[in-house]
């Protein structure tokens, strides 16, 4: 029985070491992917900020248009970006918690989701939240092309009257340890705060506002999605790296404790054997 306990502990140590190798490898992979994703997200920020500013200024000067004019809201669509894979700590749970809370807060009964990423899709399906459309397989390097395809579908639903407002929940990458879940309204486009739209800006739209908006607004939606995909990806890799780092550290601690236990067991077995030998020898005398 004593030897059996020892073997059992040995086996567990080996098993934890194996798992630790996997978590270490995953941490390294996530770190490499993070570097790339972070770079891309940061490079895209400039364009995103510019097009957002331009679009908002244009909207405040340009008057009503299909993508801009608020309408009676019957159904709200929520674009939710999650990852395809788990093992990223509380990353997906955080996104989904805020997204679902927001859906209940502003969407009421008539909220439906556009699910990007398998984790979010599964979660929403499980909770019986209606999914208008799902986009899976975005991969580690979201391309503008993918974002355009997603934006096209969303715009179609919006213009077709399937949804009357579009919201987006994603995570903004801050640093590898921190990301922030954000929810914003994509459609209709929000007007800028009063001080930004300042009266000194009086634009001429060439050839006319209608043409400019028809071109500008779909692109705005594409870029919002693209940028959110990049930010979310960087956050995801950051979260996974952190989660795998602490998993590796936990494994270290576990191994340390089990080695202590193994030594104790072995010592106990030896002591007992000596005691048996001694008492056996005494009995013979």
């Amino acid at each position: 029985m004593a030897a059996g306990g020892l073997k059992e502990v040995d086996r567990r140590i080996k098993s934890v070491k194996n798992t630790q190798q996997i978590t270490r490898a995953m941490k390294m992979v996530a770190a490499a992917k993070l570097r790339k994703a972070e770079l891309r997200a940061k490079k895209a920020r400039d364009y995103f900020e510019q097009i957002q500013a331009v679009t908002r200024r244009a909207v405040s000067k340009g008057g009503a248009q299909k993508l801009v004019a608020p309408r009676t809201v019957q159904r709200k669509g929520f674009v939710i970006i999650t990852s395809a894979r788990g093992l990223a700590g509380p990353y997906n749970a955080n996104v989904l918690r805020q997204a679902v809370a927001k859906m209940q807060e502003v969407g009421g009964k008539n909220a439906a989701a556009f699910a990007i990423g398998r984790k979010g899709r599964d979660y929403l399906a499980h909770r019986n939240i209606p999914i208008l459309q799902e986009f899976l397989g975005v991969g580690d390097d979201p391309t503008l092309h993918q974002a355009q395809a997603i934006a096209r579908e969303i715009l179609q639903q919006y213009l077709g009257g399937e949804v009357d407002e579009v919201w987006l929940t994603y995570t903004k990458f801050i640093n590898p340890l921190t990301h922030e879940v954000r929810t914003l309204r994509v459609l209709p486009v929000e007007e800028p705060p009063a001080e930004e739209s300042g009266a000194e800006r009086s634009y001429v739209f060439e050839p006319d506002p209608e043409t400019v908006f028809n071109d500008l607004l779909p692109r705005y939606v594409e870029v919002v999605i693209f940028s959110a995909l990049l930010e979310s990806k960087a956050s995801e890799h950051g979260a996974r790296m952190t989660a795998m780092d602490s998993a590796s550290k936990n494994a270290d601690e576990l191994i340390r404790q089990m080695i202590l236990m193994r030594n104790r067991l072995r010592q106990a077995a030896i002591t007992r054997e000596i005691a048996e030998l001694v008492s056996g020898a005494e009995a013979l005398e």
Binding site: R40, A44, D46, Y47, Q50, E206, S227
Partner: peptide, 24 residues
């Protein structure tokens, strides 16, 4: 002048003159 694309910022600095082609 700023020239930005969804992938990166291409140009960012002071200029005196640019020539572009619009739909018009």
């Amino acid at each position: 002048l700023k020239i930005v694309t969804p992938e990166r910022t291409v140009f960012d600095g002071p200029v005196t003159y640019i020539i572009v082609r619009s739909t018009e």
